[in-house]
Simulated scan of single mutants.
Amino acid sequence: MISRTLFTDLLMIVLLIALQIFVLNRIMLFGKYTPVLYPVFVMFYPFFRNKFQFLALSFILGLGIDAFMYTWGINTFATVMIAYFRTLIFRTSTDTSTDFFSFQTLQWSQYFFFIFSSIFLHQFLVQSIEFFKLSRLFEIFINILATSAISFVFIVLYALAFKIKQKV
């Protein structure tokens, strides 16, 4: 396994931004849903690392996405929010009460629920800020669910490809 340093974290951010902007944003499933993969950085960042550095890196990731998509801070806000509440999301979705967190000790259902909860919160924040109108509430909710489900599949494939969860 590669040791994570600030340099490797920044390199991963650049690669995730490039993958999202130049590949995934060109994929339109069912005519209007785009998969979102860049929040994997926030979801799978080691829990024991410096929290301020983690929030700063999450800010840079969101800002990079916003810079290319011209979304005026929406992705930055959503990315920093899931980064800030990641421990809470992990504890509530996995029913963990200890101070030591590990993906290897989770059951698959807990692991999937954590991923879906994180991506749902991210998409809820992005979509509700970007498209909010009371008259479009049902359409926004369907968009959140569809984008979250599609992104969930891509993130699980990413996690399996890079063996982020190595045992049940």
Rank of each mutant, 00 (worst) to 15 (best):
I2N: 15
S3W: 15
R4L: 15
R4W: 12
T5L: 06
L10D: 09
L11R: 09
L11T: 14
L11N: 13
M12F: 13
I13K: 03
V14L: 14
I17Q: 06
Q20W: 02
Q20V: 00
I21N: 11
L24P: 00
L24I: 06
N25S: 04
R26N: 01
M28D: 11
L29Y: 12
K32E: 10
K32W: 04
T34K: 11
T34L: 00
P35K: 00
V36W: 03
V36L: 12
L37A: 00
L37M: 04
Y38V: 01
V40F: 01
P46W: 11
F47E: 09
F47R: 04
F48V: 14
F48M: 04
F48G: 14
R49W: 09
N50Q: 07
K51Q: 14
F52V: 12
Q53M: 10
F54T: 10
A56W: 08
L57A: 10
F59G: 05
F59Y: 13
G62R: 03
G62W: 09
L63G: 02
G64C: 05
G64L: 07
I65S: 05
D66H: 04
A67Y: 09
A67N: 08
F68V: 01
M69Y: 00
M69A: 02
Y70V: 09
Y70R: 11
G73I: 04
G73S: 01
I74L: 06
I74H: 07
I74W: 06
N75C: 11
F77I: 03
A78E: 08
T79N: 02
V80P: 01
M81L: 08
I82R: 08
I82E: 07
A83H: 03
Y84D: 03
F85R: 03
R86S: 07
L88V: 11
T92D: 07
S93W: 02
S93K: 06
S93H: 05
S93R: 06
S93M: 10
D95M: 09
D95F: 11
T96R: 10
S97N: 14
T98L: 12
T98I: 06
D99S: 13
F100L: 11
F101R: 09
F101Y: 12
F103K: 06
F103Q: 13
T105E: 14
L106T: 04
S109R: 15
S109W: 14
S109N: 15
Q110F: 07
Y111T: 00
Y111K: 06
S117W: 04
S118R: 00
S118W: 01
S118T: 05
S118V: 01
H122M: 07
H122Y: 15
H122R: 04
F124W: 03
F131W: 08
F132A: 02
L134K: 10
L134S: 11
S135V: 03
R136K: 09
F138L: 13
E139W: 06
F141A: 12
F141E: 08
I142L: 13
N143I: 00
L145A: 10
I150S: 07
I150K: 04
F152M: 06
V153L: 10
F154K: 12
V156M: 10
V156R: 04
Y158V: 01
L160S: 13
L160E: 15
F162R: 11
Q166T: 14
Q166M: 14
K167Y: 15
K167W: 10
